[in-house]
Design a protein around this nucleic acid. Structure first.
Lengths: 216, 216
DNA sequence: GTCTATAACGAGATAGAC
DNA sequence: GTCTATCTCGTTATAGAC
C-alpha cells in the first residue's frame, strides 16, 4: 500500500538526522537550531518541521536512532563477554570508538538538554537504557560465581557505569588529559577484580568472611 | 581611589549571578539568555552586558564563584577525613546537599555548554578542579598505608570520581530512581574497600602477592 | 548604575508556489 | 517533497536618557 520509491524523501530525512548529529557533536546542544541543522544537512530549514514537526523532535529521534545503531554494533560483543576482564576490555574498546565517533558525547549533550524538555528527557532515557541493558546483562553473566557476586548489584552498577561514562565523555571534550588520567586510574583499580577473582580458596574464604561481617 | 558606596551596583551584579544560577538549575543551559536571566534576577536585560559584557561571561563567572562557594563549605570537612569510609560518608552527604542545592547540576550543565564555548570550557575546568583538588588531597591522605595504595592513583581517581558525579547528577534530573540505584550499587561495592583494609595479615599478604603478579 | 528604545539578526513555525 | 517567502517572536548588543 502507498507509494514506493520514496527514496528521495527518506534520504532528506536521514540527512537531517545526520545534520543534527553533526551539529550536536561538534558544537553542542546549545548550537542546535532548525537553521544550523538544515545547513549541516544541505537541506532547507522548513523541512525540519515538515519531517519532524519540531526541532526538539528531530533531536529526540536522532538521539534514539543513533544510539540504537551504535549499541547494535556491540550487541554481539556484549553477548560474547564471559569474564570481568573481557567486559573491561570491551569497555576500553567502546570508549576509544565512541571517542572518535562522538555518539556518547551526543547522548551526554541530549542528557544536558533534557532538563527543560520532557521529550528530550524521554529520548535520553530510552537511548541510555539501551546501553544500560547491555551492560547489565553482561554484568549478570560475568558476576555469577564470582566472590563479588554478593556485593555487586548488576542493574545498579550498569546504571553507574553508563552514567559515569557520560560524565567522563563530557569532560573529555574539555580536558582530554584529565579524562585519560581518570580512565587509567579506574583501569588500574579494576585489577582488583582480577585479583579477587583469582585468589586461592583460603584467601577467598577470608574475604568472604570479612565481607559478611562488614555487611551485617 | 574611586567611589565607595557601590553596594547597589554590587547587589545587582550578584542578583544577576543568582539569576543565571536559577535559570540553569531549573531549566538547563539551553534556556539561558540575557532576558531569562534578567527576568529571574528582577533586573533589566541590558545590565547583563553592562556588568559582564556578554551572557557567556556571566555564566562563566557564576559557574566559578558558585562552585567555589560550595567547595569552601566542605573544605574543612575534606580536611578532617581520615579513612576511606569517612570519605565515602562525606561523598554521600555532599551528594544529598548538592542534589537539593543544584550546584553539581550547574557544573554539569556548564560542562555540556562548554562544547562550543572556550570561555565556558575554561570556567568549567576551573570549577571542577576545585572539587577534584579536594577529593585528591583527601584520597592521598586516606590511602596512605592502605593495601590499596599501590593500585590507586589519587589524582586520576579524583578526576574519575568528580566527573562520574557529574554524569550521575545529570542523570538524576532525568531518572531519579535510576540514579539512586546507581549510587546504592556503588556504596555496596565500596564495602570492598573496608573489607580489604580490614583483612588480617595472612589474607592481606595473599592479596598483595596476587596483586603484584597481576600487575607485572 | 539603571532604565528605555532600538538596531540587527536568528529563531521557530506556517503558507503557498512549484 | 522541497522550495521561497513571510510572520512573529526572542536574542544579543548598543545608544542615550535619566
Amino acid at each position: 500500500m502507498g507509494t514506493s520509491r520514496n527514496s528521495s524523501s527518506q534520504d532528506t530525512k536521514q540527512r537531517l538526522v545526520d545534520g543534527v548529529l553533526e551539529v550536536v557533536r561538534q558544537q553542542g546542544i546549545t548550537a542546535v537550531s532548525a537553521r544550523s541543522v538544515a545547513s549541516a544537512a544541505g537541506a532547507n530549514q522548513a523541512l525540519v518541521f515538515y519531517h519532524f514537526g519540531s526541532v526538539e523532535e528531530l533531536v529526540a529521534q536522532a538521539c534514539i536512532s543513533a544510539t540504537e545503531a551504535r549499541v547494535a554494533l556491540y550487541r554481539d560483543r556484549f553477548a560474547a563477554v564471559a569474564t570481568v576482564g573481557e567486559l573491561l576490555a570491551l569497555g576500553r574498546e567502546i570508549r576509544a570508538a565512541e571517542r572518535a565517533e562522538g555518539n556518547l558525547a551526543l547522548l551526554a549533550q541530549t542528557l544536558a538538554g533534557a532538563q527543560g524538555s520532557e521529550r528530550l528527557a524521554e529520548a535520553t532515557r530510552e537511548g541510555l537504557n539501551k546501553w544500560i541493558t547491555e551492560v547489565r546483562t553482561a554484568l549478570e553473566r560475568v558476576l555469577t560465581g564470582s566472590p563479588l557476586a554478593e556485593l555487586a548489584d548488576p542493574d545498579g552498577l550498569a546504571h553507574a557505569v553508563s552514567t559515569g561514562f557520560l560524565g567522563l565523555t563530557l569532560f573529555d571534550t574539555v580536558d582530554p588529559d584529565g579524562a585519560e588520567q581518570a580512565v587509567a586510574a579506574l583501569e588500574r583499580l579494576a585489577v582488583l577484580v582480577d585479583v579477587l577473582d583469582g585468589l586461592g580458596p583460603v584467601a577467598t574464604r577470608a574475604v568472604r568472611a570479612k565481607l559478611r561481617k562488614t555487611l551485617s
